[in-house]
């Protein structure tokens, strides 16, 4: 899947995260801001990269403002932002690419 335009998903509420994606410049570029960065920064990065890899994304600028979201939430927000950036908002592959 490809990131064709910029898109966002998520909120800045506690235990959520806001993910903004836009087309990359030849690679994955992650900017992370998190209230739990000192304890979960590496874990969040791992989840983001795994999610992007699963979706076949290799070229993306992704910025995340995290308010203490759990892994499942981060995954869902990344998937949401990527699908929106791809223009796909209907007939989503629940249980397939979206877990």
């Amino acid at each position: 899947m490809k990131v064709l335009r910029s898109a966002t998903a998520g909120t800045l509420e506690s235990s959520d995260c806001q993910v903004t994606v836009e087309p990359g410049e030849g690679g994955i570029e992650l900017a992370l801001e998190s209230v739990v960065i000192s304890q979960f920064g590496n874990q969040i990065r791992r989840v983001v990269y795994e999610t992007l890899e699963r979706m076949g994304i290799v070229d993306i600028k992704i910025s995340i403002v995290d308010k203490g979201a759990l892994d499942c939430t981060i995954r869902a927000r990344v998937e949401g932002a990527v699908f929106r950036a791809n223009g796909k908002t209907e007939d989503l592959p629940w249980g397939g690419l979206i877990r």
């Binding site: 739990v36 000192s38 304890q39 979960f40 920064g41 590496n42 874990q43 759990l70 892994d71």
Partner: peptide, 10 residues
């Protein structure tokens, strides 16, 4: 199990 295992603060 809910939050993940926290790393030690640096």
């Amino acid at each position: 199990a809910i939050t993940g295992r926290p790393e030690k603060v640096q």
